[in-house]
Computed example of a mutant assay.
Amino acid sequence: MEKNLREVETLLEKKGIPPPGIQTLGIVGDPLRVLLSTILSLRTRDPVMEAASLRLFSRAPDLESIALMEEEELERIIYPVGFYRTKAKTIKQIAKIVLEKWKGSLPSEISPLLSLPGVGLKTATLVLGAGFGKSVLTVDTHVHRIANRWGAVKTKDADATYWELDKIVPNTLKLKVNPVLVSFGQTICLPLSPRCSECTLSQCPKIGVTHSR
Rank of each mutant, 00 (worst) to 15 (best):
S65W: 01
G21R: 01
G21E: 00
G26E: 15
S58M: 14
E9V: 04
S41A: 07
V34Y: 06
I27H: 05
R45F: 13
G29H: 08
E64I: 12
L56P: 05
R33W: 14
D46S: 05
E13D: 15
L35W: 02
V34W: 03
V48C: 06
D30H: 10
I17F: 05
L54A: 12
I22K: 01
L35Q: 03
K14W: 06
V34G: 07
I22P: 00
L40F: 02
D46L: 06
L40V: 10
I17M: 00
E64Q: 10
L42W: 07
S41T: 03
V34A: 05
P18G: 10
G29I: 11
M49I: 09
L25R: 12
P31Q: 14
E9N: 04
D62Y: 09
L40A: 06
T38N: 02
V34T: 06
K15Q: 09
L32S: 02
P31H: 14
D30Q: 12
L54I: 12
P47D: 01
R33N: 11
K15I: 08
P20W: 03
P31W: 15
E13L: 09
L40C: 07
R59E: 04
D62R: 14
L12G: 05
F57H: 09
F57I: 10
D62G: 14
T44V: 09
A52Y: 01
P20D: 00
K14D: 11
A67D: 12
T10H: 09
L56Q: 00
E64M: 10
T44Y: 06
R33V: 07
L40Y: 01
S58T: 15
D30T: 12
P47G: 01
P19G: 13
T24Y: 11
F57Q: 07
E13C: 07
V34P: 08
R45Q: 11
T10N: 11
L32Y: 02
A51T: 15
L56I: 04
L25W: 07
S37L: 07
E50V: 15
V34H: 06
T38S: 03
L35A: 04
